[in-house]
Amino acid sequence: MATASISRSDIVWRTLAAVFGGYAFTWGLIAFGMAAMVAADMEFHDAEHLTAIIGFLVFLTIFLTAFAARNIVRVWLVLVGGAVVMASAAELIKNLIT
């Protein structure tokens, strides 16, 4: 049975992706979710609480996936790209409803 050798830099990059990339992606998701729910006439605080609960579960999933994924570059691309897209969409929705 072959064992996989993991370098220290790989562990560092995965930890950074899990913590900071996960935070950015989750922040974008929460911003987008809140903007979309408020635009759909949900009360602000209800949307805030619902997206916070969903965000916690998403962050946990991202954190674990960052260590389980085979390709860390793909993880970074998904996290940063998703964060940018969702934050931009949230800003667009916010500008449309105000």
Rank of each mutant, 00 (worst) to 15 (best):
V19K: 00
K94Y: 02
L60W: 05
A17P: 05
G28N: 08
L29T: 10
I53E: 12
E91S: 12
A83R: 01
N71K: 09
N95M: 06
A2Y: 03
F44R: 12
G21C: 07
D46L: 12
F25N: 02
L50H: 05
V78E: 02
R8Q: 10
L79M: 10
A31N: 08
Y23I: 13
A39D: 11
A52K: 08
W13M: 14
F63G: 04
W13V: 15
D46I: 13
I72E: 03
G21D: 01
F56N: 14
K94M: 08
A36N: 10
A68D: 09
L29G: 14
A18D: 06
F63L: 15
T65E: 12
T61F: 06
W76S: 11
Y23V: 10
V19C: 06
W76Y: 15
L96W: 10
L29V: 10
D41S: 15
G81F: 00
A87T: 11
I93Y: 00
A2N: 12
V85R: 04
M34S: 05
A2K: 11
D41P: 05
A2E: 15
A83S: 15
H49T: 12
H49F: 08
S9R: 08
S7Q: 07
L57Y: 10
D46C: 00
M1H: 07
I30Y: 02
G82E: 08
V75L: 01
F67T: 01
G55I: 00
I6F: 12
W76M: 11
V80P: 07
W13Q: 13
Y23H: 12
L16V: 15
G82R: 02
A69H: 01
A17C: 14
L77Q: 13
L57C: 14
T61C: 03
I54P: 02
A35H: 00
V78K: 00
S88N: 04
A87N: 14
I30T: 13
M42E: 05
L92I: 10
T3H: 09
F25E: 06
A52D: 09
G22D: 04
V19H: 08
T15H: 05
A66P: 03
A39Y: 05
I62Y: 01
Y23T: 09
D46F: 11
I53K: 05
M37S: 07
D41G: 05
V84P: 06
M37A: 13
F56H: 03
L16P: 08
A66D: 03
F67N: 04
G33E: 03
R74M: 09
A68M: 04
S9C: 07
R8I: 14
F20Q: 08
G81T: 02
A87H: 10
R74W: 02
T61K: 05
I30F: 02
G22E: 07
A66K: 04
L96H: 07
E91L: 08
L92E: 04
F32N: 04
A24T: 12
M86C: 12
T98W: 06
V84S: 09
R70I: 01
F63Y: 14
I11A: 14
F20M: 03
G81S: 11
A4D: 08
G22Y: 03
I6G: 04
R74N: 03
L96P: 00
T3D: 07
N95S: 14
A31V: 00
G28S: 09
L77P: 00
E91D: 11
I97E: 09
A47G: 05
W27A: 14
G21W: 00
A36T: 07
A24Q: 13
